[in-house]
Amino acid sequence: MLEFVIKRTAQMLVVIFLALTVVFFLIRLSGDPTALFLPPDAPREQLDKYRELLGFDQPLIIQYKDFMINAVQGDFGDSLRTREDALSVVLDRLPATFQLALSALVVSIVIAIPIGVLSAYKRNTIFDRIGVALTVLGQAVPSFWLGLILIYFFAATLNILPSGGGGSPLHMVLPTLTLAAYSVARFARFTRSTMLDVLRKDYIRTARASGVPMIKVLSKYALKNSLIPIITLVALDLGVLLGGAVITEVVFSWPGIGRLLMQSLLNRDFPIVLAGVFLIAVIYSVINFIADLLYAYVNPQIRVK
């Protein structure tokens, strides 16, 4: 078990290292950020001095080496725009992103599991066709388009919900529904597939033949034995929701990491972007790491892979 933990820990560190490396070089393609922080008519000498102050006068490989040395120590530098510690700025936005992701996860579970169970029980009926159609639609509709449609109907037309921002539970409704749409479709399809497999088992046929009420068969026997893979998918999907919240936060002006990263990309605020990518990579990797440990605990055969 110890060897398995060490192996997975090493893989997690490699993923974080590669994520930071790729993003470091990609954001440099957007150009020199110093021009954005000085007046357009600033003399060349002032530009060169500012670049030297920020370290952008060094060769790219030297900048990368210095960044990695500091990043290992938890230092991602200061924001180029606000001069605040980059990692602290990102951490301040983390609770809002977690709040949105967790609420979307809860909504996804509450809506998706009943749809999946009903579709499996009513297989090849109108209920099943509607359920499958909704899941396909949920996976096909872009989140930004869905967000704009919800804003148009509930905020602009009906004027019953705020169109964006944060501060109250009402502000969470539209972004939560938007972010949850894809997960609802994903969970519902997976629940339907898992339930169909369980409903074919002999003990389910025996329970039904013994006169056990169908609602009890579905809830106590079928759904209970389908929950293990569903719970696994739900746990892993939390990382997906955290990463996928970027577009939703931008559309609804939600004060989370996603919106901060988008603004920082447009402003070429490299330290904020790298600190945000690091935090998201760590969270996603840790979630997958915990899932791997649970797999290894439940099924020892996984440890040798």
Rank of each mutant, 00 (worst) to 15 (best):
I130P: 01
P114S: 10
I115M: 14
T232F: 06
A104H: 08
R123L: 10
N70S: 14
L105A: 10
A291K: 05
P300F: 09
D202V: 02
L261E: 12
N225E: 01
L242C: 07
T82D: 06
D292A: 11
A156W: 05
V304W: 12
T125A: 03
L196Q: 02
D269L: 12
G77I: 11
L158I: 03
F187A: 03
V15M: 10
L54C: 01
G256F: 00
V136M: 14
V15Y: 03
R192T: 02
Q139K: 02
D66M: 11
D57C: 09
G116F: 07
Q11K: 07
M172R: 11
V136S: 08
L36F: 02
K49I: 01
E249Y: 01
T194K: 11
P39W: 10
N70G: 08
P39F: 07
L199I: 12
V110T: 07
V304L: 15
V173H: 00
P39A: 13
R83G: 03
L241R: 00
N288V: 01
E249S: 00
V22I: 15
Q11N: 13
L53E: 15
P114D: 05
K122V: 06
A281R: 02
A281N: 10
I130Y: 05
A101N: 01
V89W: 00
T21W: 03
L233T: 05
I6R: 12
F278M: 10
V89T: 15
S193H: 05
F153A: 13
T125V: 08
R81N: 10
L137S: 12
Y221E: 10
V173A: 02
I247L: 12
T34M: 15
M195R: 07
V304M: 14
L102V: 15
V89L: 12
T248N: 03
A188P: 10
P33D: 09
K7T: 07
D92V: 13
L261F: 06
K201V: 02
G147R: 01
T97E: 00
P169C: 05
Y297K: 14
G138K: 00
L18N: 01
Q63Y: 12
L100V: 14
M1N: 09
F56H: 12
D85R: 12
A209M: 07
N225W: 09
G239L: 10
N70M: 07
D128Y: 04
G116V: 05
V141S: 01
I257L: 07
P40K: 13
A71K: 04
S168W: 03
D57N: 15
A133N: 05
P175Y: 00
D75V: 09
V273F: 10
T34S: 14
D57Q: 08
A96R: 01
L26K: 03
R44E: 14
A185W: 06
V136E: 11
G164Y: 04
D202N: 09
P95I: 11
N159T: 08
A180W: 09
F190D: 00
N288A: 00
D269Q: 04
G138C: 09
P229Q: 04
M195E: 06
R192C: 06
G167E: 12
V117N: 03
Y295N: 04
Y203L: 04
I113K: 08
D128Q: 00
F37P: 02
A133P: 00
K49Q: 14
S253T: 13
Q46W: 06
V22N: 05
G211P: 07
V72K: 03
A140Q: 02
K65A: 15
Y284E: 09
G243L: 14
